[in-house]
Design a protein around this nucleic acid. Structure first.
Lengths: 342, 342
DNA sequence: CTGAAAGCGCTTACAG
DNA sequence: CTGAAAGCGCTTACAG
């Protein structure tokens, strides 16, 4: 017994075959499948039945060619050395993005912007790839790429505040208020000589966490002169802490702009014979895995990384849908997480 | 002064325009661009010049429709809970894959196989997505998905040995020999009562590292009865170590199947009043970031994670190119990294 | 070595 | 509400 409704093996059924099976034109079949109005319910039912029995799936490539939309967005990440450090960050953002794209039907195309090709090369391949929009995770720099993308007219959302391009839509954690909370918590628990190990001066996340700490200190009129910078590696945290202990041996607390640097700082503090939190209290930032693993477990400020990714996806989706009232950029709340170092 | 060779703004130049500018037919322009033979050098030069001056880039969507190849491969990762643990692993594999794809021109489409849709849903969207091949990172299970993909005829390379499907091409680290090296190193440095904390019994990586350890021990005729299992979390490493110390208080070394579990084990060892490596030597596996951060820094077995990704990409590329003599699967060497716990 | 033409599988004005 | 037809931008036998 043959079943003439079955698709011929080896080749995917086409819209044409669906239309024939349903006894309608290709145009009507297309409308029914895409849920457009002006299709009689009987035609719609026939098409749905044909789709089911043939196992039809629309060929996205053909659709893209006709509609000039690809149904995919690019996730661009820079492949710079520094990035390796924040691998877990990246993975979590991506999970969030993937979740946020959810049932939108959009594919996520990954693009590692290779430094050897330069940003122009990345831009080119984005246009070649014909994506509908771009999600750019900008850890370090990437500002010029963001600017070019914006000017090219491609819908764009950046993760992390771009340093120089205030006009690019972005989503970021509220680093300023998080750092301010950290300072206030230290003050509230009786600390009076509070230092900070900040991130790089040329990264928004470094700048924002430093100015947030300043704001928190200023609200109590405490001095903000004990500042050293690191580059978010553990080693740089150790080195910065050594400098701080030398210049400010009387410090009784330190806010460190990342958990990883904080772990380095804690080692130096302990090696100097000081106890944590007895002699020196420590607050980190990120609430990464190592915060809990540190000994003692590290008090820190949590940034909602998955949520950051989800929000980036949401923002891009909304823009693609033509949503008129979109906030240019979005700040996600950070949260105090008390553990044993304060 | 107008430049008639420039593309009209707003719309990308087409092959048609290139052909016209070069004074050849579309067919010839296409051949020249794709580097096919049978194009006169004068025609080739004219086309190249036209491409340059117009800034032409081939429309991949149109090409895909014509050739029935998409120029993209899917990276499928399962989004299960357990996966979160190995985030850094995942990010590094992906970097390797991206690097391995290199200049192949293939796009990497990311697909998080959501558990809620089940594997059938994932499979469907892969076929819909019309990718040329699939890279599957199989951390836990995923064997049935791998099997279905294989049967669907889509070129496939799995990262990590599938547990039940011996017929699927995969790339993995040489966990067996790595674990064997670990055991031998402990024996060579004078340890005689060597325990192990193995991974889950239902993961290939758990099984392979356990049997490798057994092999290493057997070569010296030492007993292999001190075995406990964890699930690769730090907590499970702690719990397993507690059980080991209870059942084998005389142990003088332990091989732990992951660095993260090893850090947990070290805490328990130290809390029991034993010194590392004085009383108990410890060897981990992975050479992840925390291996260096542990105190004392952890001796471990390095697995080449980026290389794993690169090799997966290479294997898939070779298969797509129709390379006839491909090894069904590939094992990447692991490497001993001596630090302070042995 | 080259060109005219058909075809890849859809969508979408347009005219009914 | 529906269908015939043009078009999206390429590739590739086929015939010269």
């Amino acid at each position: 017994m043959k079943d003439p409704a079955k698709a011929p093996a080896g080749r995917a059924p086409t819209l044409d075959e669906v239309a024939r099976a349903a006894g309608v034109s290709r145009a009507t079949a297309s409308r029914a499948i895409n849920g457009l109005p002006y299709v009689s319910s009987s035609a719609r039912a026939a098409v749905e039945e044909a789709v089911r029995s043939l196992g039809y799936r629309t060929n996205q490539v053909a659709r893209s060619l006709a509609t000039k939309r690809t149904g995919s967005v690019a996730l661009v990440v820079s492949e710079s050395e520094k990035f390796v450090v924040s691998d877990p960050f990246f993975a979590r953002v991506m999970r969030g993005i993937s979740g946020g794209l959810g049932d939108s039907g959009l594919q996520l195309a990954l693009l590692m912007a290779k430094e050897q090709y330069g940003e122009e090369g990345s831009l080119r391949s984005l246009r070649e790839g014909h994506v509908d929009g771009v999600l750019l995770v900008s850890v370090h720099g990437g500002d010029t790429l963001a600017g070019q993308l914006l000017e090219s007219g491609l819908p764009l959302v950046v993760g992390g505040r771009p340093l120089t391009r205030g006009d690019v839509p972005y989503v970021d954690a509220d680093n300023f208020n998080g750092a301010s909370m950290a300072a206030r918590h230290l003050i509230d628990t009786g600390r009076r000589r509070v230092a900070t190990i900040a991130g790089p001066r040329d990264m928004a996340v470094g700048i924002d966490r430093l100015s947030g700490w300043r704001r928190g200190m200023a609200s109590s009129g405490l001095p903000t002169d004990a500042v050293e910078h690191g580059d978010f590696t553990m080693e740089s945290g150790e080195a910065a802490m050594r400098r701080l202990l030398e210049s400010h041996p009387d410090l009784d607390a330190v806010f460190v702009a990342s958990d990883l640097m904080a772990v380095g700082a804690m080692r130096v503090i302990q090696a100097s014979g000081r106890s944590i939190p007895g002699d020196v209290a420590v607050v980190g930032f990120d609430d990464s895995d190592i915060a809990e693993m540190a000994s003692p477990p590290l008090t820190t400020i949590r940034q909602p990384i998955e949520e950051l990714g989800r929000t980036m996806a949401w923002r891009l989706l909304a823009q693609l849908a033509g949503d008129p009232d979109l906030p240019p950029s979005i700040l996600l709340p950070t949260e105090f997480v008390g553990r044993a170092t304060t």
